[in-house]
């Protein structure tokens, strides 16, 4: 498969970094990343960085193909493409366009039709998983890295859950400890 978008993403990232450096240099403290802001004890706002969504370069931007394609809203088995996507997420009641936007394939949309970017996919999830989204914003569901008293990084829901089949994947554990035996 041709690698779409492998050129434009680094540029976008570069721009984001540049913008961020400017904000830093100007001493702007309350930088909103994806609208997530946290208040600390002293009232100052601590920003949280979210790494880019885990989209594969083969697929993004979606409009590379979809801009000139007919929209097919019919629920069907996808054969020509995306045959690797298996819906296992309340699939009886769900189809692609519940989450993806038919007219702008680079965007997602909420039930009310509001467009949201892949960077903000948590807003989509939060519509049906309200309590999880609330815990995620508080730093309880999901994972934060960085500083407990400063800048944090956060993973999107999609970093841990495949939106199409969100059950957390089992994994092989690291080896058990050695049983106490001979001491050298």
């Amino acid at each position: 498969m041709k690698r779409f978008g492998s050129k434009s993403r680094p540029i976008l990232q570069g721009l984001a970094i540049l913008l961020f450096s400017i904000l830093l240099l100007t001493g702007y403290q309350a930088v909103a990343f994806n609208g997530i802001l946290q208040q600390t004890k002293t009232g100052e706002q601590v920003d949280i960085q979210v790494p880019p969504p885990p989209l594969s370069e083969d697929y993004y931007p979606c409009t590379m193909c979809h801009a000139d394609m007919e929209v097919n809203l019919e629920r069907r088995e996808l054969v020509e493409f995306h045959d690797d996507i298996v819906l296992k997420h309340d699939e009886e009641n769900r189809w692609c366009m519940d989450c993806h936007d038919a007219n702008n394939r680079d965007m997602l949309h909420t039930a009310s039709g509001q467009l949201i970017s892949f960077e903000e996919s948590y807003k989509l999830c939060g519509q049906c998983h309200g309590p999880k989204l609330r815990d995620w914003k508080a730093g309880i569901h999901g994972r934060r890295t960085g500083k407990w008293n400063g800048r944090k990084e956060y993973l999107l829901c999609a970093h841990c859950h495949d939106p199409h089949s969100p059950e957390y994947q089992k994994m092989k554990p690291e080896p058990p400890p050695k049983k106490p035996g001979k001491i050298k």
């Binding site: 994972r143 934060r144 890295t145 960085g146 500083k147 994994m171």
Partner: peptide
């Protein structure tokens, strides 16, 4: 910084 175990935990 966070303790190492906090940062390596894959499930958060």
């Amino acid at each position: 910084r966070y303790p190492e175990c906090v940062e390596v935990c894959p499930v958060g």
